[in-house]
Write a protein that binds this DNA or RNA. Structure first.
Lengths: 296, 296
DNA sequence: GGTAAAATACAACGTTTGTTGCATATGATA
DNA sequence: TATCATATGCAACAAACGTTGTATTTTACC
């Protein structure tokens, strides 16, 4: 294990002061860290050649409340192994309400960071790369994201408009969401974003696109999402959050990576497109860097 | 995951033939394979939102003797990944272009994850907590985010509409963006989101809000952002990305944390509001879990 | 609208879990 | 060798486990 592991360090440093049985238990735990999380304490004790109570006593010897703390620690290590994030800052501070708020914030943010980091798994990277290829080939990219996924769809579309005119954002008032597909065909691709619960309208439009022969690239939350069946290629993102709501941060990250990959296919073209956009917005006086005087 | 996983494949292939509860259980298992090995069945069922017996029934539905077969399988997967993962990370035998794409993706995602993780610094957490308090006190929250920041503003507003009627999204066609502020006053708060380059219109509206006596909470990208001078309270997020474009993922994460903190102030109220929203959307037939038959 | 069948919730079962108090074994000191 | 403190094994405990049969709800069809 590359990352710092405070519990392991503690076991090692206290090892010399342990009784023979405690040492045997401790040695087994250090040499088989995953097993701790995967089997029961009694079975672990059996495999280590030690009484069950020895495990409990080891935990107390280490200053923990009980064996479950040992197990919880090792389970956490497995959960976070892929991400490499060991930033376990257990510093307590502030008033009660503030502390609760700070803890919730920290849990949420760490969870989000971990989920995005998890997207660096080889399987995800391959899908991202394939999706970027597919989108690059397309004559036109239709971007669809309703309800909570609107933010992701719109952001992708917005960034792409800085690069050129390739995307159409499927959205609009008065039930005209799908109108953009009127002249869409087999040379085009639909980038559909939808997470559980899946907006019925999104699925209907994806189905329609499929029937019209469009390629479909999906950003969704599960291998069993209804979009997976419709799409040629699906990129999966977690939406779990430590709060009441689903998170879209990983989905947004995915869309940003797609934009980055697309821009990277022709860096020079991307650069000059961005400069052109800059000039245009400059001439429209869109941006400011200081507090403006109010218009009359 | 690249490696073959027969049980996972089996779950996916039989998914369509499952009852709703079985699907929910199966979905959770597919999306949280590690958890299966790390927690008890009852806890897994709790997290998946199903009865414990549903897990047993899922196992039998898959042709297994009982739930323990599912757990054993996932434990084995974890045991094998330890050796498999490091080895796989080394053998990059893809094409050059693919590798470049994968590397760019990885760099971008790791950067995003790190930036979000950095928001767990005590200073950021305090600001988040204070911002949530300020927003909770307000009679009404006006949400402003133009151009690239639209996605963040809209997402915040969307989530908040699930909780109640407290927010107004400042947006609209035909230059009516600011109209929502017509009846705004000193009891209200403006949540303004803007990053470099700062949209002139955002700053003008923030200025107007200030003059009308509104409190201002800002999500922006720098201590020297023009919004910092206008706002009572500013939360800072990084927007650096390894690509041509700025990233909004950290800003989105911040807005999600704010939503989480606000919902957490009265968990019961939040829960019942969410249930009410659920019922409403259900009665409108907004969501689906399977590929829909096309409307005529 | 009524009915049969499928799906689901519930409650109780016998196990197994992690823990604890107590009896026994061990080994050092006098 | 006697004595004592520590280390270890054992047995019993409540709690939580995975499972199962039954009651209830939901669904689909006539």
């Amino acid at each position: 294990m590359l990352q710092a592991d405070p519990l392991r360090d503690r076991i090692v440093s206290l090892f010399d002061g342990m009784s023979p049985q405690l040492r045997q238990a401790a040695r087994y735990i250090i040499e088989h860290p995953q097993e701790v999380a995967l089997v029961s304490m009694r079975e672990l004790a059996r495999n280590a050649g030690v009484q069950p109570s020895t495990m409990t006593r080891l935990a107390k010897f280490l200053g923990l409340a009980g064996y479950d703390d040992i197990r919880a620690h090792h389970a956490e290590a497995i959960r976070f192994r892929v991400d490499g994030f060991a930033a376990r800052a257990m510093q307590h501070e502030d008033s009660e309400q503030d502390m609760a708020a700070a803890q919730l914030s920290r849990r949420m943010l760490q969870g989000l960071a971990a989920q995005i980091a998890r997207l660096t798994e080889p399987a995800s990277l391959e899908r991202l790369s394939a999706a970027a290829d597919r989108l690059a080939q397309a004559r036109r990219i239709f971007v669809l994201g309703l309800r909570s996924c609107h933010s992701v769809a719109w952001h992708f579309h917005y960034v792409m408009t800085l690069l050129g005119e390739k995307t159409t954002h499927l959205d609009g008032p008065a039930d005209t969401v799908g109108d953009g597909l009127i002249r869409a065909g087999a040379e085009d691709v639909l980038l559909a974003i939808s997470i559980n619960p899946y907006a019925l309208h999104s699925l209907e439009l994806a189905q329609l696109a499929r029937e019209k022969g469009l390629g479909i690239v999906a950003i969704t939350d599960s291998e069993v999402s209804p979009l997976v069946g419709l799409a040629d290629l699906a990129i999966l993102c977690s939406t779990e959050s430590q709060s009441f709501f689903h998170t879209l941060a990983p989905a947004l990250a995915i869309s940003e990576v797609l934009c980055g990959l697309l821009a990277n296919k022709d860096r020079n073209a991307a650069l000059s497109a961005l400069q052109r956009a800059d000039r245009h917005l400059l001439s429209l006086n869109t941006y400011a860097t200081a507090i403006p005087r109010r218009r009359i």
